[in-house]
Computed example of a mutant assay.
Amino acid sequence: MSIEQPQSQGHHQSQNLNQLLVQQNSGSLSFNSNLSKEDEEMSRSALSTFRAKEEEIEKKKLEVKEKVQAQLGRVEEESKRLAFIREELEALADPMRKEVSVVRKKIDTVNKELKPLGHTCQKKEREYKEALEAFNEKNKEKVQLITKLMELVSESEKLRMKKLEELSKNIDSIQH
Results as ranks from 00 to 15, higher is better:
122 Q>E: 14
129 K>F: 04
111 N>W: 14
71 Q>R: 09
77 E>V: 08
137 E>N: 15
81 R>W: 00
44 R>A: 05
133 E>G: 09
137 E>F: 10
95 P>I: 13
34 N>H: 05
154 S>C: 05
131 A>D: 07
5 Q>T: 14
58 E>A: 08
74 R>V: 10
161 M>Q: 15
131 A>I: 01
91 A>K: 15
107 I>C: 13
92 L>W: 08
97 R>P: 01
85 I>L: 11
61 K>V: 02
121 C>P: 00
127 E>H: 07
121 C>A: 09
95 P>L: 14
128 Y>R: 10
33 S>A: 05
44 R>P: 00
88 E>T: 07
128 Y>T: 03
62 L>R: 05
145 L>K: 07
43 S>G: 01
78 E>K: 10
166 E>D: 07
89 L>I: 07
39 D>S: 12
72 L>E: 14
1 M>N: 06
10 G>Y: 01
104 R>M: 11
141 E>D: 11
1 M>I: 11
119 H>G: 03
84 F>W: 00
20 L>C: 04
47 L>K: 11
80 K>N: 05
139 N>R: 10
138 K>S: 11
124 K>W: 01
171 I>F: 14
86 R>M: 09
64 V>D: 01
59 K>Q: 06
161 M>H: 14
116 P>S: 08
103 V>G: 01
148 K>C: 06
125 E>F: 06
49 T>A: 07
116 P>V: 12
1 M>Q: 06
173 S>D: 14
121 C>K: 07
160 R>T: 11
97 R>G: 15
134 A>P: 00
19 Q>M: 02
73 G>H: 12
95 P>D: 15
170 N>C: 08
102 V>G: 05
22 V>G: 00
58 E>N: 05
34 N>F: 04
26 S>E: 05
17 L>W: 12
12 H>Y: 11
86 R>W: 02
50 F>C: 02
74 R>W: 07
166 E>A: 02
136 N>D: 10
174 I>A: 11
154 S>R: 06
159 L>Y: 07
30 S>E: 04
104 R>L: 13
42 M>D: 03
6 P>H: 12
57 I>R: 08
109 T>M: 12
32 N>H: 08
45 S>L: 06
51 R>E: 08
108 D>W: 07
97 R>L: 15
34 N>K: 03
65 K>E: 10
